[in-house]
Amino acid sequence: MAAPPPTVVAMNEPAIRVEGLVKTFGATTALAGVDLEVRRGSVLGLLGPNGSGKTTTVRVLSTLLRPDGGRATVLGHDVVADAPAVRLRIGLTGQYAAVDDALSGVENLRLIGRLLDLSRRDARRRTDELIERFGLAEAAGRRVKTYSGGMRRRLDLAASLVGRPDVLFLDEPTTGLDPRHRNEVWEHVRALAAEGTTVLLTTQYLEEADQLAEDLVVLDHGEVIASGTPASLKADVGGQLLHVRPLHRADVGAVATLLGELTAETPAIDPTGELTLSGTPALLHRLGVRLEEDGVPVAELGLRLPSLDDVFLTLTGRPAEAGPATEEAA
């Protein structure tokens, strides 16, 4: 019963291979030579702040944009020279839910099915499956205009799955969703991955990447600044982290100086005034004593394992989510 794959690609060939990808828009360099690989059947998280080149990467890989340099293949097919073959095998869920507002959920999915050359009957059957799977039965006949944000996103995801893609691109699939709907989308992505779909997911949320992705690539200003598993990236930052947040903003400088004295290291400082650096229980103790002596009131003080936020902060010197640092990038 196991049919051979329609295209002959060496099984150890990665699902997605990107080499030296360059894309410029006028004077702006969106991608400055990106290299990455996505293993077959794995979930890769492409992580980075706004404007780091995540969406451009996805648009090149899904054949929507031509790169200016480098090359990229999806399942062995070049995204420029062999774009039609790529389109047969991929699904794309964009940042802005690309479904038709004026059509119902069912009509949207059937439309995609028909465009994929399914017969009327198969398009209907596939639509019913997806409506069921994504819990849209109740709203299936309603115009998408009336859908909530979470329903739209689910329909969008369903639309990208009509053709049973081998590779799925999810460009910020949960941006703007509340936590409950975010969890729903995550469950669907996990299920797809479990079925063997290769997923490339972009996100600004480190938690999302941590939850879903087996491998991470961190982009900044169109360049890959780090890659590896979430665990290895966290390990790069070091073991435990000491974090301290003075009660008064005015004390941040004094605490930084104090930490410098105790460890000869410079702590990272985030916009909330939290200072972080690698630490041990002994350091925690000494810092506590000194803060007590100096009479510096503290809101938070403790040790923790690094999060991906810490990874990003350590790699770029600024926090992952749009903070004051985005202005200097502009």
């Binding site: 794959p5 077959r40 047969l88 399914l118 059957r125 049973r164 079925e195 063997g196």
Partner: peptide
Amino acid sequence: MTTTTNTATNTAPVPTTVAQPPPR
């Protein structure tokens, strides 16, 4: 090495349902 295990899990559960678009 890890790639082999990955592809194995990849090929196994691919659903072969009627609605599979024919190769064009």
